[in-house]
């Protein structure tokens, strides 16, 4: 297993940054070639995913069912561009498979399927499913007194689904300190800003009121993400909610904080401009 904890955190930042850039470029190529996808959310999540897979989680890609692995649940299952890219980068399957994104009979469905791909823990797509499943995984770890951690990434608009909040009670009641929720707080849902649709703020207070430990970070700052995600949860007695403030479309000027890129797809000119901007 990789042991990022043994390394100095700051040493990891350049590699994580490089992986995040690669995820943005590779996922955008997938969306461009498929002419389908959710690139705005891919980009808001790219830094979080790169940090988890290259700085936080312990896993062995060639043993995807290792009982001791840390688990990651991609609750915002529509952002498969970024998710499949990070899985390929982490070694779960060949990068060449990414070329088949959404093609007939591809293992890379628009939403992830655990029966098609290693590294996918549960099938997501409908919103509000990831946190409750991740809670069940964390409970299994709690029953066995196991060391693995369970991470789940949700969108912020997704928190309008009630299933998250009934489960928030369960996770806090059971003091699931082995469970970490990361909210990709890009403030844009499919059709408009979250705060214009169904107000989420003050989001940190809501999670605290539900009995969770809350950290608010810049979701594009790998150092900050590393800091809160690698801190030992032992003895905290609460599940952790990391509110990662992000921008939809982060990294490309014309997509930045622009709701049109929730599931917008680029034409040739836009694609080329994005690739010119997505450089180190």
């Amino acid at each position: 297993m990789t042991s990022p904890a043994t390394l100095q955190k700051n040493d990891l930042v350049p590699e994580i940054a490089a992986k995040a850039l690669w995820i943005r470029r590779r996922s955008f190529q997938m969306v461009y070639e498929a002419q389908m996808g959710h690139p705005g959310g891919d980009f808001s999540a790219a830094d979080i995913l790169a940090t988890l897979y290259f700085g936080v989680m312990q896993f062995t890609p060639d043993r995807p069912n290792d009982p001791a692995r840390d688990r990651f649940v991609m609750s915002k299952g529509h952002c498969t561009g970024a998710f499949y890219s990070v899985l390929a980068a982490a070694g779960y399957f060949p990068e060449a498979d990414l070329k088949t994104y959404m093609e007939p009979l591809s293992k890379l469905n628009g939403h992830p399927n655990r029966n098609y791909l290693p590294g996918v823990e549960t099938n997501t797509g409908p919103l509000g499913h990831g946190l409750p499943v991740a809670t069940g995984i964390a409970i299994a770890g709690q029953i066995d007194n196991a060391d693995f951690r369970t991470f789940v990434l949700t969108g912020d608009g997704e928190l309008q689904e009630g299933s998250n909040w009934e489960c928030a009670l369960t996770a806090a009641h059971r003091k699931l300190e082995n469970l970490t929720l990361i909210v990709d707080r890009n403030r844009l849902q499919q059709g408009a800003r979250t705060e214009e649709t169904a107000t989420l703020d003050p989001l940190d207070d809501k999670w605290r009121a539900f009995g969770w430990h809350v950290e608010v970070v810049d979701g594009h700052d790998h150092g900050q993400l590393l800091e809160v995600l690698t801190a030992s949860p032992k003895g905290r007695g609460k599940p952790l909610c990391v509110i990662a403030n992000t921008f939809k479309g982060k990294g490309v000027s014309y997509m930045h904080d622009n709701v049109a890129w929730h599931h917008g797809v680029p034409n040739k000119e836009q694609y080329e401009q994005a690739m010119a901007e997505l450089v180190q």
């Binding site: 009982p67 499913h129 499943v133 066995d144 009934e166 009641h173």
Partner: peptide, 19 residues
């Protein structure tokens, strides 16, 4: 899980993932 059937069923799926 309390009176929370969505959590009930999803937690079942998670427990299976955990062996």
């Amino acid at each position: 899980v309390g009176i929370a059937e969505q959590t009930l069923v999803a937690v079942g799926a998670g427990l299976a993932n955990g062996g």
